[in-house]
């Protein structure tokens, strides 16, 4: 029995599952175990309510255009809950479509403007018949850590107020191919276009997310051994 228990909400996990985002949960559980922590997972989909107080961390993945459109129509039902979750400082990892849907809007396959949650201040445009596809390396300028992933996106995302990039692009395209940024950080919300999946190749981000969740849920706990966990390279 682990000492600490975390509840993870997999937002629309049965609809936004194109890029093996389930791997991020496997990685979180793997590192959590080394932090004397277990994680249970609940899929929160279109027919479920999202109560932010029930969860300590969340994952919001990417999917096919059709499923993302269906999700975008359901978002108003969950907006207040997700807003509270994020602004309470609970950690959320948003990948690709999930990242886009946290912002104001993105442009769908047929040029239609699809509204997002607007909780984060970014927006996403499209490219004509082109995608950013390939391996990508970025550097987080605060920690000096390098992150590795695989990008595959048509969207070009531009960051807004209160957001800083997950990293500076060393090789690859990043958010939009122009400003050398990749992903976004807002409070404890981490956004990225990285597949791989991101946490399987970048255990340091998994560790940050887990520590943020533990510190939030167990503010008086001594987490020094958790903080001391050494992440072995996997890539």
């Amino acid at each position: 029995m682990a000492k600490y228990h975390l509840h993870l909400a997999h937002l629309y996990g049965d609809l936004l599952n194109t890029y093996s985002d389930v791997g991020n949960i496997i990685a979180l559980q793997y590192y959590a175990k080394q932090m004397d922590t277990d994680i249970d997972v609940k899929v929160i989909s279109i027919d479920n309510d999202f109560n932010p107080q029930d969860f300590d961390l969340a994952l919001f993945g990417g999917g096919q255009d059709y499923e993302q459109l269906v999700v975008s129509k359901d978002l108003p039902n969950k907006k207040a809950g997700i807003d509270k979750f994020i602004n309470d400082g609970k950690p959320l990892l948003a990948i690709c479509g999930g990242y886009q849907l946290l912002g104001h809007y993105y442009i769908g396959a047929d040029g239609e403007k699809i509204p997002g949650l607007g909780i984060l201040d970014h927006y996403t445009l499209s490219q004509d018949n082109h995608r950013f596809i390939g391996d990508i390396t970025i550097k987080n300028e605060e920690s000096n850590q390098e992150y590795h992933g695989f990008e595959n996106h048509n969207g070009r995302t531009f960051l807004g107020k209160g957001e800083r990039p997950l990293g500076k692009v060393i090789s690859g395209n990043g958010n939009n191919g122009e400003d050398h940024t990749e992903g976004a950080i807002y409070r404890n919300t981490y956004c990225s276009y990285f597949h791989g999946p991101i946490l399987t190749r970048n255990g340091e981000i998994a560790k940050k997310i887990l520590l943020a969740a533990l510190e939030h849920k167990y503010p008086d706990a001594d987490l020094s051994s958790q903080k001391a966990l050494k992440i072995k390279p996997t890539f």
Partner: peptide, 18 residues
Amino acid sequence: FNAPANTDGLLCPKCQHI
């Protein structure tokens, strides 16, 4: 019962429920 979350195409084509 529900299919595992990482399964494609779980939306009802008529009314878009799971």
